[in-house]
Design a protein around this nucleic acid. Structure first.
Length: 480
DNA sequence: CAAACAATAT
DNA sequence: GATATTGTTT
C-alpha cells in the first residue's frame, strides 16, 4: 500500500501546492486499532510503507524529532495545519476525532512532545483532550477559530501552554520546536540525564554561506523555502521523499533553498556601505567587503542592490521604443556602480546618518514628497494590522531599529527607495486615486461587531471550566 | 576570467 | 513579492 492510499483512508488529501503530508506510520497502527480496524491488516500496511524518517530529520533544526499529536475536527483545517507543520518539519499524527486522540494519549502519551488541539463549539471533546494531555504533562497548544480573551484565559487556566487563533500560519509554526526543546531540557534537568544539547549537529544545511559564529547583530536571518530540484542541488520536500519507489528510505538529504532576509538592520549596514562608496562606485563586491557580514555573498548583495536600484514595481514596459537599439538586444546601461535611489525624508534608517545622499544625487530627477510617502505607509500599516492578530512571534522583532521610528510604522518591505525604471525616473507606485481608504477602515471596524457572537462561546466554555466531568457529559448530551 | 548588470525563475 | 539564479556584457 502506498502513502497516498493511507492518506485517503485517513481522510487527508495528499497534495496541496506541491507539498506533501506525511502520516507518521508508527502511530497508524494505534489509530486504526482504536477505530476498530483489523489489526492484522494494519501490520501489513505498516510493513509496506516506508517512512523516510531519516530525511525528515533534516528539517528539524535540533534533531529533536518533534512528535506532534494534531487534533482537529475539521478535515480541511486538519490538513492545512498538518501541511504547515510539515513544512517546518515536525512529525505529525493527524487525528480528526478528539476522543480517539484521548484514547491514544492514554496509551501512548510518552510518544508525543506536543499536542495541538482544535477546540470548537460543536463538541467538548477538544477540551477534554486538552485536560488529558495537560494531566500527563504534555505541552498543549489550543487552537480555535473563535478566539477571544476569555477563551484564551480559560485555556491557560486549564494548563494549555499556548492558545493560537486559526487559521494557522507557517510563521507561527516554525518556532514551536523551541518549546519542545525547553521542555526536554527541563525534564532532563529533573532526571539529571539530558545534558547540553549537542551543537555539533549544525551541518544540516551544509551551507557554504552560513557560519556558526554569527553574532546577534550580524546574524543573517535564514529561512527555508521550496525550490525545484533541477540540478540535484536543491529540492522541495516532495523531491526528498520517494514515495512510490520500492527501494525504501531513499531520503537523500538535499539542501533546501536558503533565503537571507534583508532585515532593517542588515539593510542599514548595506546602506552605510553604499553611502561610504558613493554614487558610481557601488559595486556588490565592495559593498560586501565593507558590510563585513559573515555568510553574506556577493550575489546576494548584488541582488539586493538590483532591487534597490529599480525594484519595487514592474518595470515600465519597453514596448515604447525597441526600434532604437539596432543591433544590441538589450539596453544595457553603461553606468556602473549606481547609487540606489532614496526617497527624500523617508524611513529613518536611511536618513539618520545625515543628508549626504542628496548632495551626490545628480540622477535624482524627482522625489516623493514626505507626505506622500507617509500616506502610503499609514495605509499599508492599517491594512496589515487587519491580519495576524495572533499573538505569537511573527518576526516583528525589528523594533530595535536605530533611531526614532514613527510609531506603528513597523518596517514593511520598504526600505525607503523609490522605484525607477531604466531612465532613472522615480515614480510612486501607489495609486492614491483608486484606493478607498474609508472603505478599508469601515470594513475593519465592522469586524468588531462580530465579537458579540462570542458571548455564546463564553457561556459554553464556562460550563467546562471545572473538572466536573459529570456536568460536562451532561452538557454534551444536551447539545447533541 | 571575474565581476557587474539585466532578466528570469522560484 | 523578495530573493536566488541564470545569462549576457564589460
Amino acid at each position: 500500500m502506498q502513502v497516498a492510499e493511507i492518506h485517503e483512508q485517513m481522510g487527508l488529501r495528499r497534495e496541496v501546492a506541491g507539498d506533501v503530508v506525511v502520516v507518521n506510520v508508527e502511530y497508524l497502527e494505534v489509530f486504526e486499532a482504536v477505530e476498530g480496524g483489523g489489526e492484522g491488516e494494519i501490520e501489513d500496511i505498516v510493513g509496506e510503507v516506508e517512512f523516510p524518517s531519516t530525511s525528515m530529520a533534516f528539517y528539524d533544526p535540533m534533531m529533536l524529532e518533534v512528535h506532534v499529536l494534531l487534533v482537529d475536527h475539521d478535515k480541511n483545517s486538519l490538513f492545512e495545519t498538518c501541511r504547515l507543520l510539515q513544512f517546518n518539519l515536525y512529525k505529525v499524527t493527524p487525528i480528526q476525532d478528539a476522543s480517539v486522540a484521548s484514547l491514544m494519549l492514554s496509551k501512548e502519551n510518552s510518544k508525543f512532545d506536543l499536542v495541538m488541539v482544535d477546540v470548537n463549539p460543536s463538541n467538548s471533546q477538544g477540551f477534554k483532550l486538552v485536560q488529558d494531555a495537560v494531566n500527563v504533562g504534555l505541552t498543549v497548544i489550543m487552537m480555535s477559530a473563535n478566539a477571544n480573551a476569555t477563551l484564551v484565559k480559560c485555556a491557560i487556566e486549564d494548563g494549555a501552554f499556548l492558545f493560537m487563533e486559526k487559521p494557522m500560519i507557517a510563521e507561527d509554526m516554525k518556532y514551536l520546536w523551541q518549546h519542545v526543546l525547553r521542555e526536554k531540557l527541563r525534564k532532563g534537568k529533573e532526571n539529571g540525564e539530558y545534558g547540553e544539547p549537542s551543537m555539533d549537529n549544525q551541518n544540516y544545511y551544509q551551507a557554504e554561506n552560513l557560519q556558526d559564529n554569527n553574532t546577534t547583530t550580524d546574524m543573517i536571518h535564514v529561512s527555508i523555502g521550496g525550490s525545484k530540484n533541477n540540478k540535484g542541488k536543491k529540492g522541495r520536500i516532495e523531491d526528498m521523499i520517494d514515495f512510490d519507489s520500492d527501494n525504501s528510505a531513499t531520503g537523500q538529504c538535499m539542501t533546501p533553498k536558503m533565503c537571507t532576509e534583508w532585515t532593517p538592520e542588515l539593510h542599514e549596514k548595506f546602506m552605510a556601505a553604499v553611502k561610504q562608496l558613493g554614487d558610481g562606485r557601488c559595486f556588490p563586491k565592495e559593498i560586501l567587503e565593507i558590510m563585513n557580514v559573515p555568510g553574506l555573498t556577493r550575489m546576494q548583495v548584488a541582488s539586493h542592490l538590483q532591487k534597490c536600484r529599480y525594484g519595487w514595481q514592474p518595470r515600465r514596459s519597453k514596448t515604447s521604443k525597441p526600434s532604437r537599439s539596432t543591433n544590441s538586444q538589450r539596453s544595457y546601461t553603461k553606468r556602473y556602480g549606481l547609487f540606489p535611489r532614496l526617497i527624500k525624508g523617508s524611513q529613518p534608517q536611511c536618513t539618520i546618518q545625515g543628508n549626504q545622499i542628496e548632495e551626490q544625487g545628480p540622477t535624482h530627477n524627482e522625489y516623493l514628497t514626505p507626505s506622500q510617502n507617509m500616506g502610503r505607509h499609514e495605509i499599508l500599516d492599517n491594512v496589515s494590522n487587519n491580519t495576524n492578530i495572533n499573538g505569537l512571534s511573527s518576526g516583528n522583532v525589528q523594533g530595535n531599529v536605530v533611531g526614532a521610528q514613527d510609531q506603528g510604522l513597523q518596517s514593511d518591505a520598504s526600505y525607503g527607495f523609490a522605484s525607477a525604471d531604466y531612465d532613472g525616473l522615480i515614480e510612486n507606485n501607489f495609486d492614491f486615486e483608486q484606493f478607498d481608504y474609508d472603505q478599508v477602515v469601515s470594513s475593519q471596524t465592522s469586524e468588531a461587531a462580530n465579537n458579540e457572537e462570542s458571548s455564546f462561546w463564553n457561556s459554553w466554555r464556562a460550563n467546562f471550566a471545572s473538572d466536573d466531568l459529570e456536568n460536562r457529559d451532561a452538557y454534551e448530551k444536551n447539545i447533541s
